[in-house]
Design a protein around this nucleic acid. Sequence first.
DNA 1: GCATCTATTATGTGCAGACATATTATCCGA
DNA 2: TCGGATAATATGTCTGCACATAATAGATGC
Lengths: 236, 236
Amino acid sequence: MPSDRPSGAFGWQHARDEALRRIRAREWPPGALIPNEAELATEWGCARATVNRALRDLAEAGLLERRRKGGTRVVMTPLRKATLAIPVIRQEVEARGAAHGYALIARALGTAPAGVCRALALAPETRLLRVRALHLSDGAPHVYEDRWINPVAVPAILDIDLAQVDANSWLVQNVAFTRGDLALGAVAADAAIADALACAPGSAVFTMARITWTGEHAITQVTQHYAPGYRLTTTF
Amino acid sequence: MPSDRPSGAFGWQHARDEALRRIRAREWPPGALIPNEAELATEWGCARATVNRALRDLAEAGLLERRRKGGTRVVMTPLRKATLAIPVIRQEVEARGAAHGYALIARALGTAPAGVCRALALAPETRLLRVRALHLSDGAPHVYEDRWINPVAVPAILDIDLAQVDANSWLVQNVAFTRGDLALGAVAADAAIADALACAPGSAVFTMARITWTGEHAITQVTQHYAPGYRLTTTF
DNA sequence: GCATCTATTATGTGCAGACATATTATCCGA
DNA sequence: TCGGATAATATGTCTGCACATAATAGATGC
């Protein structure tokens, strides 16, 4: 038996856990400056790089604030961050074991309203492809999406038969984006939404709006309306 | 003049950017196995640790999948993750330069409904503290929150004057939690919500529900209803 | 007193080498 | 042919060292 533990070293996860313990136990209270890396390395009997890795991890998690020369201090208000996976509808539905259905409602090339152009940082009156579609989960309406696509950024989209392939899946697979904006909110269902989702007009609908970019070039803007009752969940 | 650039080394960020470029350019197509760390280190003229750091970063971002012995492969569907900051209402309001107001609506100790007990993994009929309050932004209703607090986990809360301090801020500052569940959705405003937010009954209201835990012990459950029109935004 | 230069200091990052660990591939015997 | 032991391999991590970089504190000159 070589050893009773996987590895004799005081690893970076141990260091992280110990630091976390001290933060939670208020041994390092909010706002306090903690010992520097070299000291902790000595105390814990490990290399400074190990301490660095541990503290960097906690800093990324939002619990510590680090500045060169300034040292490391416990953040005053431990603001939590939740990471939420942006669902590709088709996969989200299939992951739940449901059958994914898709229906194209409308597809049209035309000049976009000023608001959309502004949001996408395009000149007014730019011609965009508008696609409205419905996603089904086991046959029931699940998500109604209203999308504007910039054909300058994605010329190939014009040749795709969007009645067969949903724009969401196609874009994810075929266009690399560098950045995105996300907005979550709630709206009352208007006639188009109520009709598509088969719910009463005025129903409270959860919406997710996204804009994706490659560099400074906008690719697409989409607003997805979820059927009433939908909840987006995650842990933090 | 020692050098025309800050540092002559091919740093981990360079490595990350180059790997990212290859992924986007489909030089490493989705699902493909990429060269191992040692090879890339040789190719890029840097240490394996540097390549490791770069690829680890991309793996955390969800673009690569790494397995010991199995190597590193480009993820099939680049599922994006957005990190959203969970707002402490008071700070969120003040960060916008608005004045934060707060009003306690009701505070009562009593047995919680079965649904709440189940969500908090507590025995049925557990006595919990229920707090309903309203947050104001520049005097206008902003968020109505309905909260259940477990006094077993946080006995001190019973002595706090919740008319003066909002539970949100107090809990964040005084109770360390280890984990949380989050659910986002939309509901139609019922009478209580409409009254608090001064909106029409039935209005679509964005809601955020959270449960926070320390270990296996539930601390609090809160459902926050945002005034109509509110949008939670982030980037990814 | 004030501005500017300089020294100090803590973190950020890089390198080479070593060993640990997980997982796959292979070989061998029943 | 199948199952299990064994070897091979890519990633995970630690160490010790070095230097880079940012930001502060102190010294200096006016």
